[in-house]
């Protein structure tokens, strides 16, 4: 990463990130975050100094593999318990506003 990349962070970019993350930002928040993000990114870019191609990535601090569960049915939640914390439901299903999009 070159030094110039931090300057590249624009309000449009932050707005796009906020959309990806589904967080509405006020114009003030957007402006403040754009500045902060540039600052933080500049600080953390340091990682690229030592992360050369010959170094493997570590995604788990303690290396394990093949951690499996037997295919045996366990206890389920009651519908009541599942819906208890829901903002809105119809007695058996969670209710959401119109989606106006497409199914994935």
């Amino acid at each position: 990463m070159s030094e110039s990349s931090t300057a590249d962070i624009t309000a449009e970019q932050v707005a796009h990130l906020a959309h990806l993350a589904r967080i509405d930002l006020t114009p003030e928040e957007l402006q403040r975050l754009t500045g902060e993000l540039a600052q933080i990114v500049h600080a953390v870019e340091k990682v690229t100094e030592v992360a050369t191609s010959d170094i493997p990535a570590t995604s788990h601090p303690v290396a394990l593999h093949n951690v499996f569960r037997p295919d045996v049915v366990g206890a389920t939640l009651s519908t009541e318990a599942a819906l208890a914390g829901a903002p809105e439901h119809d007695g058996s299903r969670f209710k959401v506003s119109a989606i106006l999009g497409e199914e994935q």
Binding site: V72, V73, G74, A75, T76, L77, T79, S92, F94
Partner: peptide
């Protein structure tokens, strides 16, 4: 999850956290 993999059950009955 150890929730049952079944078809056609009542809504939100074959679920875990």
């Amino acid at each position: 999850s150890d929730a049952p993999n079944i078809f056609g059950a009542e809504p939100n009955t074959a679920i875990t956290p």
